[in-house]
Design a protein around this nucleic acid. Structure first.
Lengths: 385, 385
DNA sequence: ACCCTCGCAGTAAGCGCTTTCTACAGGCCA
DNA sequence: TGGCCTGTAGAAAGCGCTTACTGCGAGGGT
């Protein structure tokens, strides 16, 4: 635990500077010297002191990944994709340049998000990836946006994955108040602006609703996520646009047919029951995501309704378990792994930023067995009293 | 990004040492001075430089959490529990003492595990939590054990969660070769030995098998995990012990009725098909875990078999989706969240180590709808040709 | 054959913090 | 009233690394 650069240098018969150069690899060192140094490193089992290195270099090799819920596969998939991208970089194993992804669970709360951002800033993280929809909060949202811009201006790469791009500054007068100091010696290229990988939630929800409409459904319930989440808002918007384009009259009932909850199973369960109470005539129910849809299925089944014969159900995201549900879930496939890899590449500066700083990934309809045409009668049997 | 301790000190009219003392809180500072310092911190939006602090204090506030697969809820639940425990500590928000959990995805590979351990050692992590079963490997396992002992001896708290305790040293002659240097100034109490929270995989599997035997099953297939995983080995052992205790003859067939795969859905699917090929007369199939069991269900259903009428199926772990599967899955409940919280407390030194350094958590049978008595005939209809 | 350039390695000055050691007040006892 | 102890704050020495800057030997142009 106590072997330092100097020890290695002494053993190899060179100066500490040379050892540092060999290890960091960004300076020419003669072959023989390099070999000697590497041998000394091996023999002494030397492990670089990260903090010291970060202090001197003014940047650590930590990359923060903020997720709403680590136990939710949606985020798990993205996070592991980001991490796999960090791994695939270091040819020399745990050597220099190898980044460490720090996955932080925010629980979807803006306060937590801010807290973790501070923690990451304190660690002088090389990059920060924020995943999942943003939570709109009159006070915190601007604070987070400001903080992200500051981090980006300070050389930390900021990537939003599955989040809407940051609003243009200027709204907050504070932004201009603190003139940015000219960046000092920074490792990679510039990182002056947060980058975004946006999910096409709107388009996905729209195509899903169009699928239902094409099957003949006209009374479609929606168990949505928390209203303040941008993801919720976008999906709902896509849904309603599809409704409106099919026939404007369908919008009249939309509010009554929408229930808000969280992105978890019990919200789906409770939401479905509430929906049945409000509108027993629904022939299809959309879930905020696949997990919610699973809860919806459970509730409907308990009410004696068959899926999809009596009621069609669909989710969103296409998580691994969705294909295995009984019946297999109709949903919208989001290329989460791919998005995570891309976010990782962007965070590492391995990929050129998309034009305008925003790339949008498509959400494909994946029709399976949980949706079918409504029954002729329109009103299912066995509705609750 | 550039405001330092010295800036704060200047603004508050005190020395840098005083500011440091106020911020770290482990030294008496007069009330008035403290207030002035805190105000300066606020006004300047000062954020401690983590690396510098870690360098000077010889220990960072990072806690590593190693998981096999972050996208698997089993690990997600444990990891988020550990993280929530870190959060609940810091009264002063992101202030000092607040630890940052680093979740690392090893993919279940010992090499990766070693790599991340090195990375964490390089960051001078305050603690390391290893979750999930260990992979037995003739070369890597001793290396990992040795590394963990070194870390522990060096002041890093090491906690194993859901892993068997480390074997006693002495097997590896290398252990004694390097006399441990006396620990210097360390923050918390001693951390000289790795601590373990063991899962009672053996007992859980045994109770699960007993449940099946009690229902009347005699030909029980087992789609197990990778053979080199300790978790796999323990569960299989519990299963076989139950078989043996019921009637030794049942063991004769055990090898034929066991198929090995990974801990994922497709292994369950493939394993079930293989099992049906080898022994079409099975009346029950156990999965290595719930995810595997889900794959088993899918395969059986595709073969025209009903669950549980034709074949009973059971899993292990009791992940959230297991209760929602159709039919609801019989499984063994592991208190993952609770175990994660405990691991976090141990890692933070908030809880006294269990006697002997090992605590075992019980695994409870959770019988649901996917298991039932076998059909009278014993051989299900519709078996593959 | 000389000077300049270039490639390689050493010297040393920090990076921003923690912490020991030291210094200075008061308040207490005798 | 004088000597001491206690409480509080400053000075300064690093922690282990990176990275200018400097220096030295060897090759190439004229």
């Amino acid at each position: 635990m106590a072997v330092t650069l100097a020890d290695v240098a002494a053993r190899a018969g060179v100066s500490a500077a040379t050892v540092s150069r060999v290890l960091s690899g960004n300076y020419p060192v003669a072959g023989g010297t390099r070999t000697r140094v590497l041998r000394a490193v091996e023999e002494l089992e030397y492990v670089v002191n990260g903090p010291a290195s970060a202090l001197a270099a003014a940047s650590s090799d930590l990359v923060g990944v903020l997720v709403h819920d680590i136990a939710d596969p949606f985020f798990g998939i993205i996070a592991s994709a980001v991490q796999s991208e960090m791994e695939s970089g270091g040819e020399r194993g745990p050597g220099p340049g190898r980044k460490l992804a720090v996955v932080c669970n925010t629980g979807g709360s803006p306060e937590q998000e801010l807290t973790y951002l501070t923690l990451l800033q304190r660690q002088r993280a090389a990059a920060v990836v924020l995943t999942g929809g943003a939570v709109e909060h009159p006070e915190h949202s601007p604070a987070i946006a400001l903080r992200l811009r500051r981090l980006a201006a300070g050389g930390t790469r900021v990537v939003l994955c599955g989040r809407p791009p940051l609003p243009e500054p200027g709204t907050a007068p504070e932004t201009a108040a603190r003139p940015a100091a000219p960046a000092r010696n920074r490792a990679g290229g510039d990182a002056d602006e947060p980058l975004t990988i946006a999910f096409d939630n709107r388009g996905g929800a729209r195509r899903l609703t169009e699928h239902l409409l094409a099957l003949g459904h006209r009374t479609i319930g929606y168990v949505a996520g928390p209203a303040e989440r941008t993801t919720t808002r976008d999906r709902l918007e896509g849904h309603r646009r599809a409704l409106h384009e099919h026939s404007p009259g369908l919008l009249a009932d939309a509010d009554r047919l929408t229930v808000h909850g969280a992105y978890d199973r019990s919200s789906g369960y409770d939401g479905a029951l509430e929906l049945l109470r409000r509108a027993p005539e629904v022939t299809a129910v959309l879930g905020a995501n696949d997990t919610v849809a699973l809860g919806i299925c459970a509730a409907l089944r308990e009410q004696g309704l068959r899926i999809p014969e009596d009621v069609s159900v669909a989710g969103f995201d296409d998580l691994p378990f969705s294909a295995d549900a009984a019946p297999a879930m109709t949903t919208v496939r989001l290329p989460l792994h791919q998005a995570g890899v891309r976010a990782g590449r962007l965070a590492l500066g391995r990929e050129a930023p998309p034009p305008g700083g925003v790339a949008t990934v498509r959400a494909e309809l994946t029709a399976r067995a949980s949706t079918a045409p409504p029954r002729a009668g329109g009103t299912p049997a066995g509705g609750p009293g």
